[in-house]
Design a protein around this nucleic acid. Structure first.
Length: 476
RNA sequence: GGCCCCGUAGUCUAGUUGGCCUAGGACGCCGCCCUCUCAAGGCGGAGAUCACGGGUUCGAAUCCCGUCGGGGCUACCA
């Protein structure tokens, strides 16, 4: 059997890190088994969907490197892959269920349903809908329709049974259908609900392993029920991943801060770091390995090693991994990835000269970056004259003579190289019996405008003779 | 309220046929070294009575019961 997994994101903007993690696990599992991965857009609820959000989903998936074998734009034998374009299939299946007596029209209004929910809650029953429309006579139905009431379609749940399935993560899950109310499969506007669409599509597309968030455990029984009604014998393997929470153990909601992949991308997290980090949330390979390349993840991933308890999304560890991956980049690669961040910060880096500058500083700042967006402030002095700020101003006080001497020494240099520059500066420090810190901080302040900068001698070399001398003699 | 799931240091986790665990690794934190600043790197350290309480056993993080805590579901969202 060829493994086939899928991710079914609702296009409500840049994808949530939780969805990304689910997608990653699904993708890794498929790749590990030489199978395929399907991307399917869950846009059945028209009011929440925009074209822009849809594009964000595809962009995020591509950025993460989770390439889909079947899905939007890629195509495939089971398309289309946007559920909004598959309504005819759901309608057909809904009608089939209606004809076979598995489903019935429900004429209840939102207000009536709300009342039932409230009553059920008060009486300690698990849920709301009583199933009252199930036993309507034809006459009653005609009366409702004459009234102009719209009807949804509900699945008639056999209350006297239980549904049991084996979850690859959680083990055996038993659901008592006596506590499962008749659920809506088609809204009164004719659109399918998640329950119908997901089941129809998983069957149609031959999904073998359903890997999704723990919040969907309870819905599994209903989907299994639908499969039965469709007369489908095969059942996919289900694996429900532990939910992602904040470091305080709260649900990972917008209130936590950044929960979308796009937000992390904009801050300069590398996709390889994000993928590595996400893989560690709820999964581990052994008792010591933290860093994995994508290929290693594919080779080592297994559902058996997925844990059951909620995992906290810890930005600090993500940043550590990100720093690790930034340091593993070549200067050329780092420079190229830095371009958009510099441009956004107003630095003219998107030119061949700009790129040369970036390539030059890349080795100096790579071990100082946790995120790419930290780079522009560090290297702004290479692109424009910067006025000393804060403590740097104070450091420069009374240093005019000394800085002039530094300028004089540097001016005499034949070769403008780091070793030569260092020799001049150290020589002068020794001559004046200055400690390194006393000798170099004023120079740093004058040249970079700050007391924290990339290594000084290298920075001076990159800055060039002219600009360095100017800044030493005429501080802004 | 009802049903279901979870519970090892601040965080991610190893550990699950009970003994090799005086509980291992990583992030973070603290200190030292290196050092032109900041980092990176190296070394070291603090931090977990394995949620709590009872059992079973020669022996339990690992098995059983209970309690408490957290979460999910309980939608014509997905």
């Amino acid at each position: 059997m060829t493994v086939k997994t899928r991710l079914e994101p609702a296009p409500s903007g840049s994808i949530h890190v939780g969805s990304a993690r689910t997608g990653l696990f699904s993708w890794l599992f498929a790749k590990h088994h030489g199978g395929s991965f399907v991307l399917r857009i869950a846009d059945t609820d028209a009011k929440r969907v925009t074209e822009e959000n849809y594009r964000s989903v595809l962009e995020d998936m591509r950025w993460l490197g989770l390439h889909w074998d079947e899905g939007p734009e890629t195509g495939g034998p089971n398309g289309p892959y946007r559920q909004s374009e598959r309504f005819h299939l759901y309608t057909e299946k809904a009608n089939e269920l209606l004809a076979k007596g598995y489903a019935y029209p429900c004429y209840c209004t939102p207000e009536e349903l709300e009342l039932e929910r409230k009553t059920a809650h008060e009486e300690g029953r698990t849920s709301g809908y009583s199933g009252r429309c199930r036993t309507l006579t034809d006459e009653q139905r005609r009366a409702f329709e004459a009234e102009g009431r719209a009807s949804s379609l509900r699945f008639a749940v056999p209350a006297d049974r239980t549904i049991t399935f084996h979850d690859a993560v959680l083990g055996e899950i038993v659901t008592d259908l006596g506590r499962t109310p008749d659920f809506v499969i088609q809204r009164s506007d004719g659109s399918p609900t998640y329950m119908l669409a997901v089941t129809v599509d998983d069957v149609a597309m031959g999904i073998t392993h359903v890997i999704r968030g723990n919040d969907l455990v309870a819905s599994t029984a209903r989907q299994l029920l639908l499969r039965e009604a469709f007369g489908v014998e095969e059942v996919p393997v289900f694996a429900h991943l532990p939910l992602l929470v904040t470091t305080d153990g709260r649900p990972l909601s917008k209130r936590f801060g950044d929960v979308s992949i796009g937000a992390y991308r904009d801050q300069g997290f590398l996709p390889e770091a994000m993928v590595n980090y996400l893989a560690l949330l709820g999964w581990s390979y052994d008792d010591r390995t933290n860093v994995f390349s994508v290929d290693e993840l594919i080779e080592r991933f297994s559902l058996e090693r997925v844990g059951k308890n909620p995992a906290a999304f810890d930005v600090a560890k993500l940043e550590w991994l990100n720093g690790h991956y930034i340091r593993s980049l070549t200067p050329e690669e780092l420079a190229e990835r830095l371009v958009p961040f510099c441009v956004r910060a107003g630095l003219p880096a998107d030119s061949s000269e700009g790129r040369e500058v970036l390539k030059g500083v890349a080795p100096l700042i790579s071990e100082r970056l946790k995120r790419l967006d930290e780079a522009p402030p560090m290297i702004r002095f290479l692109f424009e004259d910067v006025a000393p700020e804060g403590k740097a101003v104070k450091t420069l006080e009374g240093q005019t003579e000394y800085l002039g001497a530094v300028a004089e020494g540097l001016e005499r240099l034949d070769k403008w190289t780091t070793p030569a520059i260092e020799e001049v500066l150290r020589g002068l420090a020794e001559e004046r019996e200055l400690k390194p810190k006393q000798a170099f901080q004023p120079v740093r302040a004058a040249v970079t405008g700050t007391l924290v900068s990339p290594p000084l001698f290298e920075s001076i070399e990159l800055l060039g003779r002219e600009r360095t001398l100017k800044r030493l003699r005429y501080p802004a």
